[in-house]
Structures are given as structure tokens and as C-alpha cells.
Design a protein around this nucleic acid. Sequence first.
DNA 1: CAAATTATCTGACTATAGTCAGATAATAAT
DNA 2: ATTATTATCTGACTATAGTCAGATAATTTG
Lengths: 297, 297
Amino acid sequence: MERALVESVRSFNRAVTERVGALNDHFLGREHSLGEARLLWEIGVAGAEVRELRNRLALDSAYVSRLLRALERRGLVMVETSADDRRVRCARLTSAGLAERAELDRRADAFAESILEPLSTGQQARLAAAMAEVERLLMASTVRIAITDPSSADAQWCLEQYIQELNERFDAGWDPAQSISAYPHEMTPPAGLFLVASLRQQPVGCGALKFHGDAPSDAAAELKRMWVSPQVRSLGLGRRLLTELERHAREAGVTVLRLETNRALVEAIALYRRSGYQEVAAFNDEPYAHHWFEKRL
Amino acid sequence: MERALVESVRSFNRAVTERVGALNDHFLGREHSLGEARLLWEIGVAGAEVRELRNRLALDSAYVSRLLRALERRGLVMVETSADDRRVRCARLTSAGLAERAELDRRADAFAESILEPLSTGQQARLAAAMAEVERLLMASTVRIAITDPSSADAQWCLEQYIQELNERFDAGWDPAQSISAYPHEMTPPAGLFLVASLRQQPVGCGALKFHGDAPSDAAAELKRMWVSPQVRSLGLGRRLLTELERHAREAGVTVLRLETNRALVEAIALYRRSGYQEVAAFNDEPYAHHWFEKRL
DNA sequence: CAAATTATCTGACTATAGTCAGATAATAAT
DNA sequence: ATTATTATCTGACTATAGTCAGATAATTTG
């Protein structure tokens, strides 16, 4: 890794954690602790289930319970048992709690304004743009890709999104039953594999390999079920998934990767071409395909 | 303040403090606490006086003392009394401490690399550029400008830098004695005023007003001693100083601001022109001046 | 229906990150 | 030579941010 890049990240960290962190504490540090403030914020105007709060803030059950008691004592929160499952408890802000949350919101605004205020209009715009860029790329860098069981909940969710999207985008809709199969067992080792990309435990993309098991002499494999959530598009995730799939294929001894695709999927087609896939004659009878590609690994 | 700008700062804060903060803790927060790690880092390879450490980290004397005892017990630090003042104690890393510090350094590098690693080369470069931009603009926004006594240490330091720079840049050097005066009393209310710009308690620029005290009917004032440290140039600080000086002048009832300048100071001249100053005929006999400017407030 | 699981709570405990009030020793000021 | 100041340390204390081991009640599973 190039030294200058590493240095710029480290320098950024120092500068931002100091400046932003210090000011943040100064503005938000009201009469309640950070834990209480975070909880107050997370409960939100609509209220939330306690287990949901625990999950979102990744806090211990005992700790959340105690924080809620403290907020209750101060009249900011009411906790009541849920109607449909009486084990579950729901936290809800009182009007005092809502006022307190609004105050936190105002302070966060004031904090942001205190950063922008000394700058000229042009500098403010440049700062906002650079911040958005850092945020986007930090998001891209946070995405993790892992081999996943295609019948797991995350994988299934991705596949549902995939089906729905193709159905919307293809001229005549899309019926997986008419298409060449990609059943879970075909995308599970040793028959194939399934990758899920996740952003903070949330699935945001997938891609699969289907090895050609019948004839071991034929070292071609098929690329299937490439999908990237709209939420993270143009972050280079498609490229990363493709690179990962190719790496796994290579490790499995595959020398040729193939795929077919529909003309509606223009970004995908562009990605394949950019990544060295050559358009070839139809090598199967997929009814929804308009283009067939191949790459020698 | 425009809503979208405020939102982008808030969103950036959330994203960066969560991602960077969490990862940072994960990488750096190993067998010693954050306090110990910060102290270990701050002592540095050359060692440092305990009072200096207290100052730099803004920590309580009792707390630093205890942290040092903890580091001593673990064989990472040696504290000994200073030779010239036996009240002062100097902390110095043992070889184990140096190794530990090197390990922290490696971890900080690994952390930076873990952010860069998932990105493509192009994305890495864009991230580094955006981070540098955020850092620069955050630095600009951290600069504070305040009316300061021109005989204070900070003001004197700025004036020394100013003198030195003009002496270097003017063809024939610069001797303040030959030039129109700007004595401390002339830049102190009510005769005038002196602004110092500071970045984290360090002076980084200055500028002064000299009101025309003799005839109250004449509401013209002179702009003097504009200087910006090379360390913070091209951050728009000159413009900010100028704007602040004009604001103070306006509040003092000044309707015309005047200044003279040397042809060597091209950035300053450009700034004056951009800011609405018109070149006028010489209104004094300043021997070092080539241009005279005036602005009606 | 019994057993397992889930959601929450309480009590007991820990580490971190401090603060505050002196005490002590060295040095500076008068 | 006092007196004041400075640099550091120790003891006693606090708040925050938790963790861990059950206990209890409601719900789900076999």
C-alpha cells in the first residue's frame, strides 16, 4: 500500500476525531450522558421496542434496562409492554422527552453550523462535497463480501430483490422457472458458491458461481445472480463482487467464466466489457438472454 | 445557513465517528487503555517533561501521574527528575516502551490500510484527496479571529514574522523605521485595533486598523500589518481577516479604508482587488509602496 | 403439556477516565 | 530568610459505560 495514501488516512483521522469529536462533545454534552442521549435519540418520535434499541445500539440488555430506568425517572420516557407479545417492552418519549430530543437535534444543527459558519460560501460547498465523497467511499470500504449459504435469510433476501428487479426491468417481466436454473444446491460447494456483500450486517448485493460439475474436464463455470442494491450503486461494488467471484473460480481450477445477460441490464453489460469479458455466440438457450459473454481467467 | 449543507455535515459526522471511531478502537484499543496509549504516544521517542505531557493532552496532574505509574509498573516508561529543575520530571520510554509505541504505529497503519484495502486504486486516490480537502477546510474553519493587544506575545510573534517576510520579499529589504509607523498604541483602541487569527491557540495571522484620530470629521482609516502564516495559506484566511477588519471599521464609523502596498505582495494585491479596493493616487509618502488602494465601506 | 427459548430485569461487579483536596519538595520572588 | 509559586504525587472520591450471572414471566416448540 502506498505510503502517502496511508498517511493521508491517518492524518485525516487525527484531525477529524480531534476537531469533530471535541466540538461534538461540547455541543451535545448536555445534562445527560452520551448513553442516555443516544438512547433518547434512537427511541425516536414514534417509539421503539426495547429489543430493537438493544440491537441498533449494540448494547447489553442490562445496560439498556438501566438507561431506560434513568430516563423514566427523569420523566423523558415511558416503557410499556407490547400488546401482541407481552414479553416485549416498548419505549416511547413523553412530551418532555420529545422536547429534549428536539433540543439535541438543534444542538447537532448548531454544531454543524459552527463548522460551516467561518467559511466562505465557496468553501462551504467544497467542504460539503468533500464530506459526501469521504462518506460514500467510507461506505464502499465498509462493505464486506463473504461466501454465504444461498438458503440463508440474507442470501434469500438478495435473491428476492434480484427476482423483483429483473421482473421490473425486463420488457416481458421475468419468470425464474422459465430461466436456466440456479437452485441453492447448485450455488453451494462443491457445485458452486454464493457470495453476499453486506454493509453493517445488512445484505446489499450478491453473486454466484455455478461450476460445471458434469464433466470435470470442462473447466468452465457460470456466473449467476449478480445483483447490487440501489442503495450502494456506483460504489464499485459490482466490480468487487466480480473480482471476488473470479478469484474463487480461479482457485477452484476454473479457466473460463461464462455468463448470459439481458439487454436491459446496461450497467452490468458495461461492467462485463470493462472487466475483460468478450461477447461470444449463444452457448445456451436462456430465453431471457440477449448477450453471452466469456472470459479466460 | 442552507439546510443541505448542515445535513451533509451532520451525516458526515455520524458516518465518520461511527465507522472510523469503531474501527480505530478495534485496532488501537489493545492491551492498554486509551489514556495509556495516548500518553505512550505523546512521550515519543525523545521523551518529554511530565508538565509538557499534561499540557499537550490537557489532562489532570493526578491522572497523568497515575497513568505514568501504571506504565512504569509495566516496564514501558521510566520517569526521572530533570537535571536543571529538580521539581520537573521527565518521562522516557524504555526499550519495551519504544517497541510498544512502534506497535501502536503499526496498528494505526493497519487501520488506515483496512480502510483503503477494499477500494479500487482510483477510489483510494479519490478518498485520499477528499480526506485532504476535508482536513484543510476543517482547519480553515478552526481558525478563530479575535481583537488582541498588539503588545501581547502572540501579536508580537505575528509582527516579527511579518517584518521578516517583508524583509525577505521586498527587493531592497524592509526597515520598519523607514516606513510609516504602526506602533502598538496606534493599533490599540481607541486609536486603532489589532486582530490575531489563531489555530488551536497558535497565532497564524494578523491585521490591524489605524483610525485617523486627528480630525474626527475625516472618517478614513488605514489598514496595516496584514499577514498570514505560510502554514495556513490558501485557506481564505486573508479574506476573513480583511472582512473582519472592515466590519470593525464600519462599526467604528469609518467610511473609507485605505492601504498602501509593495508590488512584491502579489497575493495581497489580488485579494484587495477582489475585495473591492480601487487603486488610487498615492495618498502618503510610504517609501516601500508601489500601489495605493481605497474602499468605500 | 413439559421443555426450551425469548425478552427483560435486578444485583453484583469491573475498568476507564477522570476530579478535588491536600502533602511534599524544589525553586523563585521579595 | 521568609514567603509564594511550581511541579508532582497520593488518597479519596465520582460518573460513565459497561459485563456477567441469575431470576422471572411470556411465548414457542416438540
